[in-house]
Design a protein around this nucleic acid. Structure first.
Lengths: 85, 85
DNA sequence: TAAATAATTAGACAAATATCTAATTGTCTT
DNA sequence: AAGACAATTAGATATTTGTCTAATTATTTA
């Protein structure tokens, strides 16, 4: 859970997740949507990968990133437990 | 949302929320459940308050903290939107 | 009113984090 | 094989964060 909360605790990373909701994108395409250098975005993608919120699929010289929402079920469970009286 | 994610991104604070699920506790009672100084716990409670995850109710020299789960609805909505295809 | 108790605020410090530039790795094309 | 392109890794730096001790504020009680 630590990696998950850490990954979500940044607006850029949350925006990346929202972008990937539409469809898969390469690291470069994602970086183009931000006013930030590619290495910085690469680092954010790494944290998202560590949290298993995204998966990376290398195709030639490109790396496609996809959203993995199943890992969020753990978070949902935690929240619901907290809300349960 | 920033304050919310920030508040959740710490195991001590998440533990405090779980403790408050059972019932309200004073700051001192909460601090007693951790191996950490009272000022540190006080700081964590402040961040939780900033995120509106807890409310504080002063009764004499004691301050009772209660869990506020309604603020989590915002988070649930965000997660569900992300999961929605 | 003075001492005791509950809690916070202030200030210091080490560790973690976000960002950048420069360098590296891997792949494709000519 | 060389150059171009995609992406990451390495290293530096400023900011944020978590924790502590010491000091302060507010309330109760003897």
């Amino acid at each position: 859970m630590n990696n998950l909360f850490r990954a979500l605790n940044d607006p850029t990373r949350r925006k990346i997740l929202e972008i990937l909701r539409e469809k898969d994108f390469t690291a470069g395409e994602i970086a183009d949507k931000f006013e930030m250098t590619k290495p910085s975005i690469s680092h954010h993608l790494d944290l998202l990968k560590q949290a298993e919120l995204v998966t990376a699929d290398k195709q030639g010289q490109f790396i496609y990133y996809s959203l993995n929402t199943t890992i969020l079920d753990e978070l949902l469970k935690w929240i619901f437990t907290l809300k349960q009286p």
